[in-house]
Computed example of a mutant assay.
Amino acid sequence: AIGEPRAAVKRRRMWVGGVPTQLADSYIPASVDVEIGYSAGLTVPGGIYGLLEANGHRLDRFREELVARQASPEEAVALHLSNGAPVVSLVRHAIDEAGKVVEYFDSVAAADRHRYVYEFKATD
């Protein structure tokens, strides 16, 4: 998905009010990581997208795919859900102006703890 065999990976489990709500993994191509210092802990306002843009990777578009499904046994344990509880899987590709995937984001969220709202302009 990122066009390279190696990546810098950050894995997170997000909590709200003491309850785990989301598992989120970000994959940055190794060549991009070297340029932006992601795995070295460098930060700027705007998080990973601000860091990418500050280092010459102007973002052009995102491709997202949402899928509702049952939690795997491992996801159910990590999110404190019952076996087979509904989750929403979100996969995002962040693509720069050169057409390179600069982040692959893969998350699983407890379906009853999230709302996804999208707003975008209609174009010709």
Rank of each mutant, 00 (worst) to 15 (best):
R6Q: 11
A8W: 03
V9K: 15
R12P: 06
R12Q: 15
R13N: 02
W15R: 12
G18L: 10
V19E: 15
V19W: 08
P20H: 07
P20T: 05
T21E: 14
Q22P: 01
S26T: 07
S26G: 06
S31M: 07
V34F: 05
E35P: 02
E35I: 13
E35N: 08
I36K: 05
Y38S: 03
G41C: 10
G41N: 13
T43G: 12
T43A: 14
G46P: 05
G50P: 13
E53L: 04
G56H: 04
G56I: 04
H57G: 04
H57W: 11
R58F: 10
R61F: 02
R61S: 13
R61T: 11
F62L: 15
R63T: 05
R63N: 08
R63Q: 15
A68L: 12
Q70L: 06
E74D: 14
E75Q: 10
A76Q: 09
A78K: 14
H80R: 13
L81E: 07
N83A: 11
G84K: 06
A85P: 07
S89C: 03
H93I: 00
H93P: 02
A94R: 02
I95S: 01
D96R: 05
V101W: 01
V101L: 04
Y104E: 01
Y104V: 10
F105N: 00
S107E: 15
A109S: 14
A109F: 01
H114D: 00
Y116N: 07
V117T: 11
Y118F: 13
E119Y: 00
F120I: 02
A122N: 10
D124K: 09
